[in-house]
């Protein structure tokens, strides 16, 4: 073995023995994935949003500047889809969080079955995004589905859930609320963190259940609420499966979620450039709303320091 080969071996051994090496190796798949499947596509989409790119045509797309962004505001369906999505977010997120907190609160009592119940309530979150459950949901609310069968048996009129543009969104909202499990688990963990002594002190002072909840539980839980609020808001903005499978965006675009409209333009209509512009606009809306939540949080989130 000559000298250079030897030094190479020594070098590589040095490298292998450095402490960070294993860390780098373990981080590599993530870094690789992030760069290839997140960062590069994100940047590419920014470029495409300035072109008339379509997946159907080969060759270089034409650069058309901000025309896609200007066209957005002349697009009736786009404007409508923003309205629909905001409505969906503003109704589904508070309902979901309230329900998650309620169930989490119920499950704080000391009982052996609590773990079982928690698992049971968590199941919808595990399966909720799947197509199969969405199809079940579609059947439940169908014209002759379970809910309408119950209504008819109770002597009420059947409701045409997905045929009425004003109603069609609510089954979708309900489906989102039903998947409250992951927020519930986080709330449950948060509730456990609240020191028992606070409650004891309150009870000694004669506080009733509601007072204790409002004055102790909620403030102590507020950082967790903030976290859940932001996470759920972001995920609600990206809702797609329900609208795509159950209603297809109809009737009269009453359930045309933003993500669905992006999908339609990108894949079905062959306007990838326009769809990219929509996505970037969505990013701006989501950032603004998240920012507002953060800014207002100073007023209602209590930290230990306060």
């Amino acid at each position: 073995m000559d000298k250079s080969a030897l030094s190479l071996k020594v070098d590589s051994q040095k490298f292998l023995h450095r402490n960070e090496f294993v860390g780098h190796v373990f981080a590599a798949p993530f870094v690789f994935g992030f760069i290839c499947f997140s960062l590069i596509p994100i940047l590419t989409s920014l470029y495409y949003s300035l072109t008339n790119y379509s997946m159907m045509t080969k060759g270089q797309p034409d650069f058309i500047g901000i025309k896609n962004y200007l066209n957005l505001f002349q697009d009736e369906i786009f404007v409508k889809s923003i309205g629909v999505t905001l409505k969906y977010v503003f109704i589904s997120v508070p309902l979901k969080l309230a329900f998650a907190l309620f169930v989490a609160y119920l499950l704080t009592r000391k009982s052996r079955l609590v773990t079982l119940y928690r698992s049971l309530y968590y199941i919808p979150s595990l399966v909720g995004g799947s197509v199969a459950v969405t199809l079940v949901w579609k059947q439940l609310f169908a014209r002759k589905g379970l809910f309408n069968a119950l209504m008819v048996n109770l002597g009420l009129d059947a409701i045409n859930w997905f045929g009425d543009k004003n109603l069609a969104l609510y089954p979708l909202v309900l489906m989102s609320v039903w998947q409250f499990g992951s927020s519930m688990i986080i709330f449950a963990a948060g509730l456990k963190e609240i020191p028992e002594s606070y409650y004891e002190a309150a009870r000694i002072d004669g506080g009733n259940g509601l007072q204790i909840f409002l004055r102790i539980t909620l403030p102590c839980l507020s950082p967790i609420i903030l976290y859940n609020l932001i996470m759920q808001t972001i995920s609600a903005f990206m809702a797609f499966t329900q609208a795509y499978i159950i209603t297809g965006g109809g009737p009269d675009n009453g359930t045309m979620m933003y993500a669905l409209y992006v999908y339609l333009h990108a894949i079905k209509y062959g306007n990838m450039g326009y769809a990219c512009a929509m996505s970037w606009f969505m990013l701006v809306i989501m950032s603004i709303i998240t920012l507002i939540i953060f800014k207002t949080s100073k007023a209602w989130v209590f930290t230990e320091a306060d």
Binding site: K138, R143, F162, G163, D164, T247, G248, G250, P251, D252
Partner: peptide
Amino acid sequence: PDAGAEME
């Protein structure tokens, strides 16, 4: 059928 029923 209306839009909802058509989706079925």
